[in-house]
């Protein structure tokens, strides 16, 4: 029994208003209030604590590629509700609503661009589109990106952000893991270079396929990186998980990623890697 009891029901608590919407945002890392304009200039990295907030795929592409060099591919590919999936909300409706809400056609944007003069195929996932989940379209766009990189003999870079497979597409979504991994194997046999970048969060089906198959795997700091959800693990083993479990630092420590790189230094690091594999003389002069 509680000490204090509300004597009459139906009292409405005023809506909590921490700060005006649209101008400010709260940092998930330190809880500090950040001015959005300033945050954007800082690539969505908290000025106070260096926490890497989620970043939309357009901003990420712009951050990595040389100005005006990005040409999007397969932009009009869209998911369909081929199972007529019955959930609380119909999948077909969810797709329509999400496309309208986040102004993207799918959870990954792919294309060709230049990174410090190096021509690359690049794919960037976006968590805001149904949790960055991988359905047929994500799988197919990744596949075509691999094929493009293979036929043009240029490196492939994929920036992951995903909660896993898109269950509304049933087993077909699981098969996207097979599809992308198999294509990467073919690409690798062909001598292709693939750099995988893991951002917050990279989990489940995406992690257990193309995210973990890079020749080089780079993680952003403090990202959630893991296969099973932390809640599921906690339930299974019946004990609390240690601090930092399934973080970028955790997977680095256990030997499963090559390095952790701050977002602000990502382009520079990619350039260094491309310099090594391709050599400065192959840069496109602009």
């Amino acid at each position: 029994m509680s000490w204090f009891k509300r004597s009459n029901d139906g009292l409405l608590t005023k809506e909590r208003r921490d700060f005006p919407k649209g101008l400010w945002v709260k940092c998930e890392g330190c809880g500090g209030i950040l001015y959005i304009k300033e945050l954007k200039r800082n690539f969505n990295v908290c000025i106070k604590c260096n926490y890497h907030l989620k970043m939309g795929c357009d901003d990420y592409v712009n951050m990595l590629v040389d100005d005006g060099s990005f040409i999007q591919t397969d932009a009009n590919m869209r998911s369909i509700d081929f199972l007529n999936f019955k959930g609380k909300e119909k999948y077909s409706e969810k797709l329509v609503n999400t496309i309208k809400k986040v102004n993207l056609n799918e959870a990954i944007k792919t294309g060709i661009g230049l990174i410090s003069g190096y021509k690359v195929v690049i794919g960037v996932m976006d968590f805001s589109f149904i949790g960055g989940s991988m359905g047929s379209v994500v799988g197919e766009k990744v596949k075509r990106s691999i094929e493009r990189a293979m036929s043009e003999h240029i490196p492939l870079i994929i920036v992951s952000a995903s909660g896993g497979a898109r269950m509304m597409e049933g087993l077909a979504s699981l098969m996207q893991m097979a599809k992308t991994s198999i294509k990467l194997a073919e690409f690798s046999r062909d001598g292709g270079l693939y750099i995988s970048i893991l951002t917050n969060p990279t989990t489940a089906g995406v992690m257990a396929s193309y995210a973990m198959l890079g020749d080089i795997i780079i993680a952003e700091p403090e990202a959630l990186i893991g296969f099973a959800g932390p809640r599921v693990i906690k339930q299974t083993i019946g004990e609390k998980l240690p601090e930092g479990f399934q973080s970028s630092e955790f997977v680095l420590e256990h030997g499963f990623v090559d390095m952790i790189v701050n977002r602000k230094e990502m382009k520079e690091k990619l350039t260094e890697i491309l310099d090594f594999f391709i050599g400065g003389h192959n840069r496109v002069k602009r």
Binding site: M177, A178, S181, I182, L184, A185, E186, S188, R189, A204, M207, A208, S209, Y210, A211, M212, L213, G226, F227, A228, G229, V232, I233, T236, I237, L241, F245, Q246, F250, V251, H254, F256
Partner: peptide, 26 residues
């Protein structure tokens, strides 16, 4: 399903699965 445990994550079951898909292809 794959085991959702602590050690399973420490030894990166996601990498193990991904690797199998990749290797079985060829």
């Amino acid at each position: 399903g794959a085991f959702p445990g602590k050690g399973s994550e420490e030894r990166c079951v996601a990498e193990a699965i991904a690797r199998n898909l990749y290797e079985m292809a060829l």
